[in-house]
Amino acid sequence: MNYFEALGKESFLYRLDARVKLVVLLLFAWKIALSSSFGEVLGFAPFAVALLFCLRGDMGQIFRILFAADAFLVFLVISAFIYGNISLGLLLFLKSNEILIISIALLMTSEPFQIFRAFRDFKLPAKLVQLFFLTYRYIYTIYEEYRLMMKSAYCRGFKPKTSLNTYRTYAYILANLLVKSYFRADRIYKAMLCRGFKGEFLVYRESKMKREDYAFAAVSFLVFTMVELWSLSGQKIFL
């Protein structure tokens, strides 16, 4: 699985503006997270499932992500069951999965840089956005360096075991990564200064809202309002 690439490049979700996707995600995640009614949470489920179908991505990959998260959530449900509140456990399980599915469909279909650009457009602190961006940019490089060092260790007979030598080897590799990252950060800063950097990351290709962005926002808000109105009018959906 490549965590550095967006999912569902064939789907219309990939083409949507990251700002719209972020707003929709925050709106739904906020509402689902704060909801304490099964009916309301289930009311948002068709929207989450519809997004999942629109994704047209590798379902195996998506379910692997969900499974990894659910492996933890199952313990939550079991704990709730032990303490006699199974419905709370199930509600938490359902809410978490819905938020996760909507996040996968809306966040993971954006290139990371589009998300950072959206953060900047939402006036998040410039330093925070730069921090996110540079972390993303260099995490792959650091990972590659880690892999190289591990290869180098394997080429010289290293076999991970429960032994002092193994711990020491990993400690050396970690220490090396930290030192290398420190020096690299210093050199990158110099490289930025060499090209006129004055503290602000300027973006060349600005994003523009398209018709389908407005359409998606409108449909999402319509779904959100319908579920809310239904919930407020006291009617229960499904349950």
């Binding site: 290139e111 990371p112 840089f113 961006f133 540079l134 940019r137 260099y138 490089t141 690299r184 050199r187 990158i188 110099k190 490289a191 930025m192 090209r195 006129g196 950097f197 004055k198 300027l202 973006v203 060349y204 290709r205």
Partner: peptide, 21 residues
């Protein structure tokens, strides 16, 4: 080492970095 120099997300943004600044 080019990895010390190239920090933008794409090649196009990298080339535009200096003239924008």
């Amino acid at each position: 080492n080019p990895d010390d120099q190239l920090f933008s997300p794409t090649v196009e943004e990298e080339l535009a970095f200096a003239p924008m600044n």
